[in-house]
Nucleic acid binder design. Structure first.
Length: 896
DNA sequence: GAGTTTGAAACT
DNA sequence: CAGTTTCAAACTC
């Protein structure tokens, strides 16, 4: 933020520019691309802005391998591109509305970027010239970049350049991969009919789309022959994988920009050719995304710098910069779509700070709202991963998305992001792990049958369906007949995913061609119920556990909870009709079910557990600590209640969350006692979520467990956590300064991230499977929660967050299920470093909330943060560790 | 695969 | 906010 940071950025930019100039390939490409650049820049700018494209949220899983990837990538990009596009397109994009706030922060960037882009347009290599201006813009966003190598820094010069650079890096490292992907995409697109098929129908069906697309096209044209360029470029991309990365990026970016509207536009332009163009666009996007993903992935392996670059290059060195970024990110987070960007941004930031953290933008955001919470049983857990994987595998992201969505609406995107994040997650190794993990999960997902709906909406469930359906590509998704897939009845829509060819829906409007409609509808739904797309499942952690976990390193099991509860009357909560059951979470007080027999936890049990916990907390408090701490502890109930509220509050949707932040903050702050708890809660939240309920049989035990003191339900929302953290830091420990920073970053943290973490866990016991990275739409939010998540262990998104060390293991399965995916990326990023730190709990229990991660990360070592936590913990009476957690943890570990 | 059941989503 | 209707998934046969 400070001038120094800017100066530094400027220097870096200059260096980068110089490098660019020096580097013939890049410069050449750039110069070649120059025409395109403008567009790209614009897109890039958007992406950088983080504003992102709302549309991203919906991606058709079906589009499947191609599209999914594309979409996923797109999400990442979209964040940027969308922002630009939104600006460019104006109101065309809904995201803008949500993003308005974000837009403020991003605006500067965008404007700057745009300016840069323009300049670039004028001057092919003008990038160099622009450095100054760009630097200015970039600085805002890209403070980070500094860290990046000079070459990387070049990216900073132009957002476009950055992207390109990232792409370059990624491509360099993974050129082959990219090529392959591109080729695949192309082939798929070319051969595939899903998109084309759907389109024709859609075209006929929806008049709206055309107009919108047309408008978009016009807008684009106005901007400058962008449309043309993209097409040119794209083709090149498609055919020429070898094309410079930069060019690719640009193309991609341009394509991505267009993407929102683009695809539709192209289609409209000319059916046959349009489709191809769209496909190209998709491919482009895919490429971009892929690149991004690769980059993200690579980031870990290759260099943090790339990640940094992607994000706008966050320099670890400059905290101030990071902060800025965070703020920007926060803004970005507002829009669900932006989540991806946000996550990316965040991750970047984190990565910047922490070498380990991978920047990656997660493409998939887990909107999820849906995220998956759960993952339940078996399959569900894997969903999140699926999203990523799915994309690749064709498995529909829907489930993941759904889960994510519910968590964060833009699940689709988020999911993708989550994947990305997962992939990228903290360390390269992690990223790889994630990759593997995903790959592993994919199969699982495929295996997983369907849990569809409920969950999906809820999170995992949807994914499961999709995934299951997709299995093999066959993911069945929705079968909507009357709703046109524009209502929450539609799992795909609910998950923020586009319907794919696998869907049996009739008159489907939930397709890329109808982005406008989809977004509009989405907005309408959200206007009625902001949390409509939020993840339905929230983690709940036992205070006791949390506390212990921190102190002891133990982990308490956390459980997922259905935010609104079920209303089962005949299914006894033992069938998938029950969303709780479907999500592999136990019923809670929020449920109005009759004759509950939920194997994951009965409603009655839940209540009892809470009581017990609260009692214990009180007792311990009395015994142990005095003064405020005691009070705080005593307030465990408070905490619970609050947390609960928070949870409820936490919106899945990014935008939502973001909004909620403001709302939440007060609440979180409300609890003084919370702080202590909150800190714990934060930790616990992430981890706990994962599991508590997750284990079916155990879940009960977990909740009920003697250990379980209180089950704090943690809202997935990272915000809450963040706030809590911040407060804590402020009050309790100076050490928390880091936390404070973190808190600043917190916005990044997403509940989703938490979700992610949690998701991982459940399976072991349950059937679940495991690791499902849940992607939540919210992930994009990057709220503190996400940050936490980052810290969390990479393995499972969910676990990562909370688990990182102990947590991951502990709650994992359950948590994983519950958790959302999106955040995972971010979390991963952040978490990676942290995670290493966190592995504190021997038992695996842990749960340290994200905070710990944060602390660690900040302090680089756990010391600072830990101390902070310890502080809190001390204040709070330590509760006996919950054994159940251990089991779960173990399970999770194994699974993980 | 058709029909029924179920509970969430949507509507009033 | 409560009650009713609509909807699509889950389930059964």
């Amino acid at each position: 933020m400070g001038s120094s940071s800017r100066l530094w950025r400027a220097k870096q930019l200059r260096c980068a520019v110089d490098v660019m100039k020096m580097e013939s390939p890049f410069s050449n490409y750039i110069s070649n691309l120059s025409p395109i650049k403008p567009v790209n820049t614009a897109h890039v700018a958007h992406g950088l802005l983080g504003i992102n494209s709302p549309p991203l949220v919906f991606k058709s899983p079906h589009t499947a391998s191609d599209r999914q990837i594309y979409l996923l990538r797109r999400f990442q990009y979209p964040q940027i591109s969308e922002a630009e596009t939104s600006k460019i397109d104006d109101g065309s994009k809904k995201a803008v509305d949500g993003l308005e706030d974000m837009g403020k922060s991003s605006t500067c960037l965008t404007s700057n970027l745009i300016a840069d882009a323009q300049t670039t347009d004028n001057v092919n290599n003008s990038e160099q010239d622009q450095p100054g201006s760009s630097s200015g813009c970039v600085d805002d966003y890209l403070s980070d970049p500094v860290d990046a190598d000079c070459a990387d820094s070049v990216d900073l010069v132009n957002p476009n350049v950055k992207k390109s650079d990232d792409a370059l890096q990624a491509s360099e490292s993974h050129l082959t991969d990219l090529k392959i992907v591109e080729s695949d995409d192309i082939n798929d697109k070319g051969t595939k009919g899903e998109v084309s098929q759907a389109r024709p129908e859609q075209d006929g069906e929806d008049p709206k789309e055309q107009p919108t697309s047309e408008t978009k096209m016009e807008k684009i044209k106005e901007d400058g022959s962008i449309a043309k360029q993209p097409s040119h470029v794209c083709p090149n991309f498609g055919s020429d994988l070898l094309v410079d990365h930069a060019s690719r990026h640009q193309c991609c970016t341009s394509g991505a920009q267009v993407a929102h509207a683009h695809e539709p536009i192209q289609l409209r332009t000319s059916n046959g050719s349009e489709v191809g163009q769209l496909q190209r666009g998709m491919s482009r996007r895919c490429l971009q995304f892929e690149q991004a993903q690769q980059e993200t992935i690579m980031d870990g392996t290759y260099s943090p710098t790339t990640a940094i670059n992607l994000f706008g290059s966050i320099s670890p060195a400059s905290n101030t910069e990071l902060e800025i970024l965070d703020s920007s990110q926060v803004e970005l987070t507002i829009s669900p779509y932006k989540e991806q960007t946000m996550t990316a941004m965040f991750s970047a930031n984190i990565s910047g700070r922490y070498p380990l953290a991978v920047s990656k933008p997660s493409g998939i955001g887990l909107h999820l709202n849906s995220i998956v919470n759960t993952l339940p049983m078996g399959s569900s857990a894997s969903k999140p991963t699926m999203s990523h994987h799915l994309v690749e595998n064709k498995i529909s992201c829907s489930k993941l998305l759904n889960l994510v969505e519910r968590v964060s609406l833009t699940a689709g995107d988020r999911v993708l992001q989550a994947k990305d994040s997962l992939a990228t997650s903290p360390t390269t190794s992690e990223s790889f792990h994630n990759m593997e993990f995903y790959s592993n999960l994919q199969p699982q997902e495929q295996v997983t049958p369907h849990n569809k709906r409920r969950f999906s909406s809820g999170h995992a469930g949807n994914f499961e369906k999709k995934a299951s359906s997709t299995v093999g590509d066959d993911c069945k998704r929705c079968n909507c007949r009357k709703t046109k897939c524009l209502k929450l009845y539609c799992d795909c829509f609910a998950a923020g995913i586009y319907c794919a060819g696998t869907c049996a829906c009739q008159g489907c409007f939930n397709r890329p061609e109808y982005d406008d409609i989809v977004l509009e509808t989405r907005q309408q739904i959200e206007s009625r119920n902001p949390l409509a797309f939020a993840p339905k499942i929230v983690q709940r952690v036992t205070e006791f556990q949390a506390i212990d976990a921190e102190d002891l390193g133990l982990f308490t099991p956390s459980s997922g909870k259905h935010k609104t509860g079920c209303n089962c009357k005949r299914s006894m909560c033992v069938k998938k009709y029950c969303e709780c059951y479907q999500a592999n979470v136990g019923c809670s007080n929020a449920c109005r079910c009759e004759g509950c027999r939920n194997i994951h936890g009965r409603k009655e049990e839940y209540a009892m557990t809470q009581e017990i916990v609260s009692k214990r907390a009180n007792e311990e408090n009395l015994e142990g600590m005095a003064g405020e701490k005691l009070k705080m502890v005593a307030n465990n109930k408070f905490l619970h209640a609050e947390l609960y509220d928070l949870r409820s509050l936490t919106p899945p949707t990014p935008s939502f969350e973001y909004l909620s932040h403001g709302k939440d903050t007060p609440k979180s702050r409300l609890l003084p006692g919370r702080y202590v708890l909150s800190s714990e809660s934060d930790f616990s939240m992430l981890p706990s979520y994962a599991k508590s309920l997750s284990s079916p049989s155990n879940s009960h035990g977990n909740d009920m467990l003697p250990n379980t003191s209180k089950t704090l339900e943690i809202a997935i929302l990272g915000q809450e956590l963040d706030y809590n953290i911040t407060e804590i830091t402020g009050e309790f420990s100076p050490q928390f300064d880091g936390l404070a920073d973190f808190s600043d970053h917190t916005p990044l943290l997403n509940p989703s991230s938490i979700m992610m973490a949690s998701s991982a866990s459940s399976k072991t016991r349950d059937k679940a499977n495991v690791s499902q990275p849940q992607v939540y739409p919210g992930s994009a939010r990057l709220s503190s929660g996400s940050s936490l998540c980052w810290r969390s262990s990479p393995i499972t998104p969910m676990t990562r967050l909370g688990e990182t060390k102990n947590e991951a293991q502990d709650s994992d399965c359950g948590l994983c299920d519950i958790l959302e995916d999106d955040t995972p990326e971010l979390l991963k990023d952040s978490s990676a470093p942290i995670t290493s730190v966190k592995s504190s709990s021997p038992n695996k229990k842990r749960v340290s909330p994200p905070q710990s991660h944060i602390q660690e990360s900040q302090s680089s070592s756990s010391a600072g943060l830990k101390s902070g936590r310890k502080f809190i913990l001390k204040s709070v009476p330590s509760f006996p560790p919950l054994t159940p957690c251990l089991d779960s943890k173990d399970c999770t570990r194994q699974k993980c």
